[in-house]
Amino acid sequence: MTINGFKRQYLISLLTAATLFTAPVTFANGPVGEHVNHLSDNIETYSQEVNWLSTKVDEMISRYQQGGVEEAKPDLLVEYWEEVKFHSAIETNYVPVYASIWQGLFGLKGAIEEKASIEEIRKQQRFLEQSLWQALGAVKLAAQYQEKGLTDKVATTQANPGNSLEALDAIKSRLDRVVAKYAEKLSKEAVNIVHDTYLNLFEGVEGELISLDADLVEDLEKDFNVVLPQAIQNGKSIDEVRDIVNTMKGKIDTAHSLLEKSAEERKDVF
């Protein structure tokens, strides 16, 4: 191997090691920008983007009224959404509304493609716009908390939970992401998140949890391995999948209380 070749190999190895140490978080549409850690500085941009999206949706509906589906070009809806920075601001701060935005985008896109009545189209538009404004409100609130130092820095690198309670919190966030990915029509990715969450997070907690409430663990086992993946694979509605996830999150809250109480009562190591 030449010296240059050796150096290149060395650099590749070093980069590999560095990548393994801090893997950047990549969401559906590329890496999260650092702007998510400076929300206040970007609120104006986000507001402009939401207005811009609303205008684009309005224009699309006008084109639909004038020239039908071909003129409307509904595929552009997803492109518009993926273009804006606001996308990752809401995705990293409040995933449930992020999922609603995708639900609204695809609701409107589907209604146009199916040549729905203008009343139905307007209904879908209202749902989308409500979700967008609700999302902007959530990001503004998050910006205030961020400014006061009340929120953790948004991870632009993946972190691992340090204990069972943190693992349960992480599970709830991942379950929200399942709904978001399903709303994005990424069913396979949604199911993968369910499986990864089970194997990498819940599986590490359930051994401790089962000695406290075996029935609860049994329920969650079934939810993770049967109920939720099957609902996604069978093409249930987003609202149905969201209901399953919300029920699971309630059980996770129960698990959280049980583990918290158990930790208080556990004997000291030394």
Partner: peptide, 15 residues
């Protein structure tokens, strides 16, 4: 390595 819930973490914290 992740495993055994928070029990390894408890040991480390005690140390």
């Amino acid at each position: 390595g992740r495993g055994e819930g928070g029990l390894y973490e408890n040991v480390i914290k005690a140390i």
